[in-house]
Amino acid sequence: MKTHVSTTINGEAVEFLCQPRQSLLEILRDELSLTGCKEGCNNGNCGACTVILNGLPVDSCLVLAVEVEGANIETVEGVAQQRQLHPVQQCFLEGAALQCGICTPGFIMTSKALLEKHPAPDEEEIRFSLAGNLCRCTGYDKIVHAVQAAAESAPAPK
């Protein structure tokens, strides 16, 4: 049996039907075509599926879709506004902070959440906060630099 869920995704009211066993990741990707969040491990160890749920980064593979009734969800698709990249996206792009790109949406979401919480994090805070996101290509150097650059480039939006 399917459950009806009403939620807000990237500022828009969204309704969907789901089985209780379906994760938020599955629904976002397979039902709502928001394929920006990626499946890397499906058990909360890689962060590729990170979305922001009620203001906090979560692994969407570890959220049941039925749980998000009434919730506010941000996905990577909603980060750029009016065709303008968010400073984090801009700095990832300019700083070559991605190679294969599969982990990138997850990093963008966690980094955005970090800068909203701590507009001027030091390297230690950045690395600690991003530890739940695995990247196998970059060695993290340029990712950390990109987050630093994003912090410097713009006052984080409130």
């Binding site: 962060g47 990170t50 749920l53 980064p57 979560v58 970090l114 996101n133």
Partner: peptide, 8 residues
């Protein structure tokens, strides 16, 4: 876990 886990 990481931050994502601590959120939940």
């Amino acid at each position: 876990g990481g931050w994502q886990i601590q959120s939940r």
